[in-house]
Write a protein that binds this DNA or RNA. Sequence first.
DNA 1: GATATTTAAGTGTATATGCTCTTATCATGA
DNA 2: TCATGATAAGAGCATATACACTTAAATATC
Lengths: 155, 155
Amino acid sequence: MSDENKCCLFSPEDCARISRACVAFQLRRAARKVTKAFDEALRPSGLKITQFSLLTASFLQENQNVGRLAELLGMDRTTLSRNLKLLENRGLVKLEEGEDRREVRVSLTEEGLEAMEKAAPLWHQMQKQIVSGLGEFRWEAMMSELRLLGKALKK
Amino acid sequence: MSDENKCCLFSPEDCARISRACVAFQLRRAARKVTKAFDEALRPSGLKITQFSLLTASFLQENQNVGRLAELLGMDRTTLSRNLKLLENRGLVKLEEGEDRREVRVSLTEEGLEAMEKAAPLWHQMQKQIVSGLGEFRWEAMMSELRLLGKALKK
DNA sequence: GATATTTAAGTGTATATGCTCTTATCATGA
DNA sequence: TCATGATAAGAGCATATACACTTAAATATC
């Protein structure tokens, strides 16, 4: 790349500011790291943190339909659909036609419950480690900001 | 799922606490939402926020090798490798053998720079919207917490 | 009651992510 | 110089993510 082009619109300093400031970049990076930490911690349970989250949500929202569950989880319906399919293949959740036959209802199986129970203490340990690493106060603040961020992007 | 099993290890209330508290879940959810918002904002530029981030990083770290870049970005080397490959296919970055012939050196092409410049104002607008939606003060706090979180998980 | 509209979910396609294993190259020491 | 170990990156595999489009079922409208 030639020198005159390097200065078209932004300098390396501008660029560095973008990089440091970018909400998306920082959030995604943090999410990658935290995901990795939890995945390692949960490995003995055979679940990844995403799967543990889905099982937990399915337990909480027993017999919910896919669309509503996706909405609650803040994820795309089709993403959830595929992720649930994988859990169904492993026998961890049950997917059944609803009364409204367009709907698919989600529930945990016995095995799903067992997997969740096996993973729970591992989850708890890593969660404690992260919270204490960050400090209780900062952690509370961050959780609250993340929720606010979610609300701010609701529309 | 039978009733006696529902009480094995945790109640729905415990489960709700896990869900609300889980650092990984909240971070991933926030990352999904923010990613979506930026992807929509950047659409006219033909870049996704992840790609914009990579171009920016490549610009900042001109001629860096893949492994080091991955380290700086806090992502898996193999992930970065593949993502860069996609940008190379589109002619946005150049991947060249280094002096050490095991290494691959990354640099922006003219087109990559142009794409970045086209995306920058769109990025800026969404960034501003999110920051002001959250409030300058909370945003600063969150950025700092995310950086700390990263450091706490360094090892 | 037949047709049009709305709604729930699935499919096709593409990117993002990271683990494990492999390959190519470099550096080191006998 | 050759064997050995270290290092950089790629390949194979699997999951996570979401957009655009399609399909099937329920609802509304005439």
